[in-house]
Simulated assay, not measured.
Amino acid sequence: MSSTTIHPSVRGAAASSGHRDDGHALIAEDGRRLAASWFEPPQGSARAVALVSAATGVPRGFYAAFAQWLASRGYAVLTYDYRGIAGSREGALRRERATMRDWAVLDMSAALAAAELRREGRGLPLLLVGHSFGGNCIAFARGVERADAILGVGSQLGEPRLYPGVHGAVAQVFFRAWVPSVVAAFGHLPGWALGPGAQPLPAGVARQWGAWGLRRGWAYADPAMAPHRSASAVLAPVHLWGIDDDLTYAPPRAVDALAAQFRNAAVQRHQLAPADVGRRRLGHFGVFRRDPGPRAWARLLAPIEAATPALRTAGLQPLG
């Protein structure tokens, strides 16, 4: 499917950090407040800035261990919650009017603006990290073409035709029948409708997720998104990673379809096998858990830092 919700496998992934500052709020163009956290390097000043954009319905806290690790290497790292999710939820979910378009066009743009402000003055390089939806839609954020590099993990075009066998059939039923019927009954998409441990989604987010899933070309073929589509303006390195045992959410063909959107960028496709980082299974969420943690994160970062001159010469702490 195009983007993801919290699964039991992501619980407990966050790590506490003495360098985490939760006293931040992003303000989107429409005035909506978004909860955010900054992770700063433990010693000295930042050498680079990283923006981490989450999968659908996943709170920013899930990425805290990863953000802390990036900070230990010299990045100033920003994580945030999309409207209607976790710290950015306001009031009853049934009254929330958020859509996926809002997440991509308004919330991602607000986060990107904050990351750019952090880099100003010193000319720090900027790395955008997206998990699932966070990588699917970052190209709709204002100013994405000014980033020095984009790293997507489990990010894809969520069209059922791109999914193998039973996974494609399940996605068809999910988008065509399950999402609209459950939202009609409850006024939002409850967590149980997505699986154990999942976060509920606002009705508008769920409906647009379903509509994009049934559209050939996904969000990139939605006329309403055309004015915000900036993938072709990206010239920087774009590295997209698929996980070998992640066929339910981001199989190789779906990741390849997203890669094709960045037609002018220096795109590289990578696959990660669980055995590469000493695991029997990773799935869609396992890469961001504390175990395998740095072993996996160093593998993800090494190619894109090597391919990005501004990151390669930033003086970051060695990978390890």
Rank of each mutant, 00 (worst) to 15 (best):
G168P: 01
G168I: 08
G168N: 02
A169Y: 11
A169V: 06
V170N: 10
V170F: 13
V170C: 08
A171D: 12
F174A: 10
F175H: 15
F175I: 14
R176E: 06
A177H: 14
W178L: 13
W178I: 11
W178P: 02
P180G: 05
S181W: 11
V182T: 10
V183D: 11
V183C: 04
V183A: 04
V183I: 06
A184H: 13
A185E: 08
F186I: 04
F186R: 00
H188V: 11
H188W: 13
L189V: 05
G191N: 06
A193K: 09
G195C: 07
G195S: 09
G195P: 06
G195Y: 08
A198T: 03
A198L: 04
A198V: 04
Q199S: 14
Q199H: 13
Q199R: 09
Q199C: 13
P200G: 03
L201I: 09
L201N: 06
P202T: 05
A203L: 11
A203K: 01
V205G: 01
V205A: 07
A206I: 10
A206D: 12
Q208Y: 06
G210A: 13
A211W: 07
W212A: 04
G213T: 13
G213P: 06
L214E: 05
R215Y: 07
R215C: 12
R215L: 13
R216Q: 01
R216C: 01
G217H: 09
Y220G: 00
Y220D: 01
A221L: 04
A221Y: 04
D222L: 03
P223Y: 03
P223E: 00
A224P: 01
P227K: 00
P227W: 11
H228W: 07
R229K: 01
S230R: 01
S230Y: 03
A231I: 09
A231L: 07
S232Q: 02
A233V: 02
V234N: 03
L235P: 00
A236V: 14
P237M: 06
V238W: 03
H239A: 04
G242Q: 12
I243D: 15
D244P: 08
D245R: 05
D246Y: 09
T248Q: 09
P252D: 15
R253Q: 12
A254D: 05
L258A: 08
A259S: 08
A259L: 05
Q261D: 10
F262P: 04
R263T: 05
A265H: 01
A265D: 11
A266P: 02
V267A: 05
V267W: 02
Q271S: 15
Q271T: 14
Q271K: 12
Q271E: 14
L272M: 13
A273F: 12
P274T: 15
D276A: 15
D276Y: 09
V277F: 04
G278E: 06
G278K: 04
R279A: 14
R280T: 05
R280V: 09
R281Y: 09
